[in-house]
């Protein structure tokens, strides 16, 4: 008689074990490990920029030097060190990438979950999301950035504002599945308010999707920032990877100083690739079909 009870009691620890192993299993994939490492290095580089290289200022006599021991990434047409510019550029790119994706996540999750749970809101929210998705974002961003004075914060707001619809879409579709689950009905029967159900019952179920979205949105935001800076709409006082590219393009040195465009482009490529891979693998990992759950 006790045997079934025992098996029942033995059950709870079982889900916990795969959970732990799924995290370490996730990190044990070589691509993921590499991506996370790249992301870590980028973050450390941004945080400790002043320790790694002096902020690029002034002008020097060593103009357009190719990469060497003294200047790892060469120098630009003012004689400033490109390595220092890339290191300091990581700050702006990461700050804008993360802050913009946080704005997008907060907006997107709020709108997505509200739409998923409160049915009357859904119609309006879906239409608004669809309209936002159909907008040509780049020209609009260019227009907005041209009208307001460009700074790190205005760029963050602009990019974040145009990035939420994708997130809202994802969260809403996941939220719809969850809000149809029996335990949500259970919560409702127990008298939980809509607010409680959304924040305590549905939100935790979409957290992993949010993590994926943060990574993907941040990588898109980094690209947007580089694009806007390259078009001359970035913060002129802050180093960013797009601005290094703009300087090279404007001074006509692209053909003779490959290092001035190669290294910032590589930095963008690495960051975006790492964030995308890490995000997608994380998404695959939590997919129950893949884990046989």
């Amino acid at each position: 008689m006790s045997a079934p009870v025992l098996t029942e009691q033995a059950l709870p620890p079982v889900p916990a074990a795969p959970k732990r192993s799924s995290w370490s299993g996730y990190l044990r994939q070589p691509i993921v490990a590499l991506s996370v490492l790249v992301l870590l290095v980028m973050v450390l580089m941004a945080v400790f920029a002043p320790l790694i290289a002096d902020e690029p200022t002034g002008a020097g006599p060593e103009v357009l030097q190719s990469p060497s021991g003294a200047h790892w990434f060469g120098t630009d047409d003012l004689g400033q060190d490109v390595f220092a510019q890339v290191v300091w550029g990581a700050r702006t790119s990461l700050v804008i990438g993360l802050a913009a994706s946080l704005i997008a996540i907060v907006l997107g999750t709020t709108i997505g979950l509200t739409a998923a749970y409160f049915r009357p809101v859904d119609a309006v929210a879906t239409v608004v999301t669809d309209v936002m998705l159909a907008l040509p974002t780049l020209p609009l961003m260019i227009m907005l950035a041209a009208v307001v004075s460009p700074s790190v914060w205005t760029l963050t707001l602009i990019i974040g504002f145009f990035a939420w619809p994708e997130v809202a879409r994802l969260i809403r579709s996941q939220g719809l599945v969850i809000s149809a689950m029996p335990y949500i009905d259970g919560a409702r029967v127990l008298g939980a308010t809509g607010w409680r159900i959304v924040t305590r019952e549905i939100l935790p179920a979409v957290v992993s999707l949010m993590i994926v979205s943060v990574l993907l949105t941040a990588s898109r935001a980094v690209i947007s920032e580089a694009g806007l800076s390259f078009l001359g709409l970035g913060d002129p006082d802050a180093w960013s990877w797009g601005r290094i590219l703009l300087n090279a393009q404007r001074s006509g040195t692209i053909a003779i100083a490959w290092w001035q465009t190669l290294f910032p482009s590589l930095a963008i490529l690495l960051l975006v690739l790492a964030a995308t891979l890490a995000g997608m693998r994380f998404n695959d990992n939590r997919d129950p079909r893949r884990n046989g759950g």
Binding site: V63, L64, D77, R250, S251, G252, T253, A255, I256
Partner: peptide, 9 residues
């Protein structure tokens, strides 16, 4: 005009 920095081209 050719930008000064690009005259090397």
């Amino acid at each position: 005009p050719v930008p000064v920095s690009a005259a090397k081209t």
